[in-house]
Simulated scan of single mutants.
Amino acid sequence: MSIKQRFRTSMKKVNGDLLTPISIFQRLQGERKFLLESSMKYEGHGRYSFIGVSPRKTYRGEQEQLIDTSHLTNKNYTYEGELISLLKQVMPRISSHTEYPFTGGGIGYINALTNDLPELEFHVYDTLIIFDHLTDEIAVFHTNIEAEEVAPNIDAFIEELFANPTPQETTYALHTPELQQDGVYGATFSGDAFALYRKLRIEHAAPYMYYIDFDDCTVVGTSENNYLQVRDGTLSATDQAPSIERFCQGTSQTVNTIQHGNLNPTLHAIDVVKALKPAQGLIGYIGFNGQVDFTTPENIITITGNRAHIRTNQAGVHFEALMKG
């Protein structure tokens, strides 16, 4: 199939029934990989998985200082101010309308991890793989976010994806977990973090499941609930979030514990994220197209070196099921 060209965007779809999101992730070559999934067990979830590697840039923020790192030039740019407002200013915006909710943008967290990590961190991916579980199609998107950027060869990228062998099975181990504070455990970790993710997605399958490689840590987790989403102009938020009425054009309504309304077109989705972020933080994506999808960290493991910090919203998390894999 020929590549479709849109303004600043290239896309190609291929039959992907010989692959899975797990095997695609394992075959990708590069650094700072991520995988976002949703269990097919949950109605209304599970159609798409998103996979990426080698982000174009990274935004890291702490104490009103946001650092923009280009992985192409290895140059850093520093901005001063409120972090989420700065993130809104620097995140590329590309208008695109596709059947997919996310075709590229920032993957990361806001105030969601351990105290010794940045308050905010997002990798920005200009090339994205989307696996459609309904059609078994793979779509590869590339968005040119900078004028001098040379678009990758999508055909060659896909050919390598099918040609690369799937790595051998790996293992991991969590050793002697100890309660550090309410709901947070510490443990010694050894082995492969992705093997832990594969075990976690089985033992704690949920509508939100994620694996993200950051520079200082790797994050794996699952969450039952959407906290905040903006898609196709519709703002949705859990009823545990503050009222969304002031961000809507017209009235909002609550259906099955979810608030819904039409986002005021004068606002950006990041404005809502800034206003409604909960104390426990958020993890998810900000799309180039202005759409966002965030969950709160529920069952989340942050691995830094040989230490794992495990947060759970479940009393007496079943460590026995995760100790080895």
Rank of each mutant, 00 (worst) to 15 (best):
G284E: 05
Q253E: 15
I310D: 00
I270T: 13
V272D: 00
N313E: 10
Q259R: 04
I286M: 05
H268F: 10
T296W: 08
F294Y: 11
Y285D: 00
N264E: 00
D293G: 03
T251F: 08
Y285W: 02
E298L: 06
F288T: 02
G281A: 13
G281I: 13
T312S: 15
N289H: 09
G287V: 09
T251H: 06
K277P: 03
V255N: 13
I270R: 08
F294H: 08
S252G: 15
A315F: 09
H309V: 05
G290Q: 06
I300Y: 02
I303M: 10
R311I: 04
I286S: 04
R311E: 04
K277E: 07
Q291S: 10
A308C: 06
L263W: 01
N306V: 01
D271F: 06
F294Q: 04
I286C: 08
T254N: 11
Q253K: 15
G290Y: 09
N299A: 03
T266S: 09
H268M: 08
N299M: 05
N262I: 07
G284N: 06
Q253T: 15
I310C: 03
I258Q: 09
G261R: 09
Q259T: 03
D293Q: 04
P297R: 13
N313T: 14
V292R: 02
N313Q: 11
T257W: 06
G284L: 03
G290M: 03
N264L: 00
D271S: 07
V272T: 01
V273W: 09
G287Q: 11
P278K: 14
V272H: 03
T254I: 13
L282Y: 14
T302W: 10
G281P: 14
S252T: 12
T266G: 10
L282D: 04
T312A: 14
T254A: 08
V292F: 04
H309K: 05
P297N: 14
R311K: 11
G290N: 09
H260A: 03
T266D: 11
N306E: 07
Q291G: 08
A279T: 15
Q314G: 05
H260I: 01
E298Y: 14
A279W: 14
N313G: 13
A308K: 06
D271I: 04
Q291T: 05
Q280T: 13
P297W: 15
G284F: 05
G305R: 07
G305M: 06
G290H: 09
G290D: 03
A315Y: 10
T251C: 02
G284V: 02
T295M: 05
F294K: 06
G261V: 03
T302H: 07
N264F: 00
V273L: 14
N256G: 01
V292A: 04
K274H: 13
H309A: 04
R307D: 12
I270D: 09
T296S: 10
P265C: 00
N262E: 08
K274R: 15
A279P: 12
D271T: 06
I283G: 10
I301V: 11
S252E: 10
T295V: 08
V255K: 14
K274T: 13
K277V: 05
T251L: 05
